[in-house]
């Protein structure tokens, strides 16, 4: 052990050794990226096709189809999921069983299979009607859009239900009781007090599911719904530029997902209202009961 007394501490300097491992890892990463970029560059990819088609009318139509389907299916999924989550936590056993059965069924069947079932509904029900009223031909109603919407929305509802339920469970029971004690009905307390707090827990996984849905809509191409993968396919069947057009589709998926991720962080910020770090507020600043006067 050295004795500090014999050292001129003022002269000591801390050395900063070069972080070789970090440099090496960075170099490897750069080399890998360069390799991939080079491969794409020398590969038989005609990049001008990518830029030509990126904003072409049929592709943009497909992009719109993807966005519309994602939004509509998620709206159905969230509304349905919230209702089913509340049913699953209801005091009424019939509602609980119905909710459990729904989740069991629609989580169990692959999404692609559900789309095909909805799309081919006419095979078993040639006409559909409301208890005998307003009969319509199933083939007229079950367009690719409707079939995809039902298939994706309903199965999304089954997943969302579990997300919403875990969110509701994360809120302290006392919140419901306090809301009831100021005269709210259970439903109103659920909607205005419990669910807004549950959102903190619900939003991140729903964001995840929404991003999943963007990509899941590509399944709808199988039933002729024109989303981006299908319109891209239509083009490359005509001009054989398969990879170029698939790259176009990939770029659009990345754009949509990036925008959604940014939107999610704003939504999370909104629902974190009131959850700022309590520790930041010094207790000493509390104005004591002095205002009460000597009691």
């Amino acid at each position: 052990m050295q004795d500090l007394a014999g050292i001129d501490v003022q002269r000591l300097r801390i050395s900063r050794p070069i972080p070789y491992r970090q440099v090496a890892a960075s170099a490897l990463l750069l080399a890998f990226l360069a390799f991939v970029a080079h491969a794409f560059w020398v590969g038989a990819i005609e990049w001008h096709y990518v830029s030509d088609y990126l904003f072409s009318a049929p592709i943009l139509k497909g992009v719109r189809g993807t966005i519309v389907m994602t939004v509509c299916a998620m709206v159905i999924g969230i509304v349905l999921g919230t209702a089913v989550a509340m049913m699953r936590m209801s005091a009424n056993p019939a509602l609980r069983w119905a909710a459990t059965g729904y989740i069991w069924l629609f989580r169990g069947i692959p999404a692609l299979l559900q789309l095909l079932l909805w799309f081919n509904l006419a095979l078993i029900f040639p006409t559909i009607s409301l208890f005998g009223f307003f009969p319509v031909n199933t083939v007229d109603v079950m367009t690719p859009f409707v079939a995809a919407l039902l298939g994706l929305g309903i199965q999304q509802g089954a997943y969302t239900a579990e997300v919403v339920r875990s969110g509701i469970l994360s809120v302290d029971r006392g919140q419901m009781e306090a809301a009831q004690s100021i005269g709210m009905t259970r439903l109103r307390a659920m909607l205005t007090i419990v669910l807004p707090q549950a959102m903190r827990v619900i939003v991140p996984p729903i964001g995840n599911e929404t991003i999943g849905m963007v990509k899941l809509t590509s399944l709808a191409s199988v039933i002729q719904y024109s989303e981006v993968l299908r319109t891209v396919g239509d083009v490359y069947y005509a001009n054989s530029r398969v990879i170029e057009l698939l790259i176009v589709a990939g770029i659009w998926y990345m754009v949509i997902v990036t925008v959604l991720s940014i939107g999610q962080s704003y939504i999370e910020k909104y629902f974190s209202k009131g959850w700022g770090r309590a520790a930041d507020v010094p207790k000493a600043l509390s104005d004591g009961p002095a205002a009460m006067g000597a009691a």
Binding site: G174, E177, A178, A179, S181, I193, Q197, F271, K273
Partner: peptide, 12 residues
Amino acid sequence: GMVFQRFNLFPH
């Protein structure tokens, strides 16, 4: 009116 042991104010 009800006042609870753990306050139960609405945090949001």
